[in-house]
Design a protein around this nucleic acid. Structure first.
Lengths: 188, 188
DNA sequence: CTCAAAAGTGGCACAGCCTGCCACTTGGCG
DNA sequence: CGCCAAGTGGCAGGCTGTGCCACTTTTGAG
């Protein structure tokens, strides 16, 4: 992670974390749109101006969480034999916060929009990582499709998961990926 | 379409179209973020306040175009034998405007975010339309995956299309869908 | 230890998006 | 013609996000 040697750095991580917690709580309490940056900043005991020094936008607080998960996925890709397994391994991280964020996403379209956009960027990074040096156009297309389809399945699986009480996310993801893999008969 | 009997209705369509044209031109000229609603309204010779009576947000101007295309897709689904063919048939509509919008999307992340969100909503509509009455959970999941994966392939295809000079969009889409259909080896 | 540089913070002003409200104009219709 | 509904413009105001500057605190070099 980031180096936490000095006092300065420690304080920074502290307020950053305070902002994330405050935002998460407020978003859950009154909805993403209704919660204002002013309130979040007040709850974290900083000025609104400072909020925007930590995050570029109101959604940034949650995107940060998203990015952490993606970083773990990138690591998992190195050790797991397939992308699908890397995805499943990553999901088995901190259920708690993951579920909270996903439930917020289900209720806030504006938030969902930003996340989807970020996901597209992550797809590109993932494709770059999975692609060998000097790939053929065929390989590029195949890899892009693989990643995009995997993310699509992930999205569908999360949707099922959230609407099925007492179920495990990883199971839904596994099922969706398996179904995807055995063919969808798109053109038939 | 909408009834265009009276003078009132005709005027409305006129200013609406003027707003779309003005917005498209301004977005292309100075970028989505740089172009202000005030400028768009001025170019269409209405007040900024009126702009928001036609569209709920600045992006709304382009979402309207997106929605028209989706309406055509819904129609195509009724006649085409598969979703894939319906998609391809729809794309063969007005290339001109379609390409302009897609090129704007490639340069404006904020715009892309809104579009992606809208696409998710469209996916849901499509799933509802494709699903039989009283579907099994398996059918629901399969259909959701089919639609999500198809849209994912469409997105990848459009990306390839935009970066390949002098190519036809439909060909990229056909290729991507075919590749998707012959299997991605997701879990292998 | 001292002190200057660097980093972080707060306040202020400001542009832009978007909404509610009210007055005004204009088209539809008996 | 005259009424009603629809459409429009202007204004006030809240919220997001950014640039700028002054102030405080931490860091690190001498």
């Amino acid at each position: 992670m980031t180096k936490l040697c000095g006092l300065r750095e420690r304080k920074k991580q502290q307020t950053r974390s305070a902002l994330v917690d405050a935002a998460l709580a407020l978003f859950e309490a009154k909805g993403f749109e209704a919660a204002t940056v002013e309130e979040i900043a007040a709850a974290a005991d900083v000025s609104p101006r400072t909020f925007f020094r930590y995050f570029t936008a109101k959604e940034g607080v949650l995107l940060a969480v998203h990015d952490e998960e993606f970083a773990r996925l990138l690591d998992a890709v190195d050790t797991a034999p397939t992308l699908a397994e890397a995805v499943i391994a990553t999901i088995d991280g901190d259920h708690e916060r993951f579920r909270r964020v996903q439930e917020l996403l289900a209720r806030a379209p504006a938030l969902r929009a930003t996340f989807l956009e970020r996901t597209v960027e992550q797809e590109h990074q993932l494709v770059d990582k999975l692609l060998p040096a000097d790939p053929t156009p065929q390989q590029v297309l195949r890899t892009r499709l693989l990643v995009a389809a995997t993310y699509a399945a992930l999205r569908v699986a999360i949707e099922s998961w959230l609407t099925t009480p007492d179920s495990h996310c990883a199971e839904h993801v596994t099922e969706a990926l398996a179904l995807l893999d055995q063919g969808l008969a798109v053109t038939r």
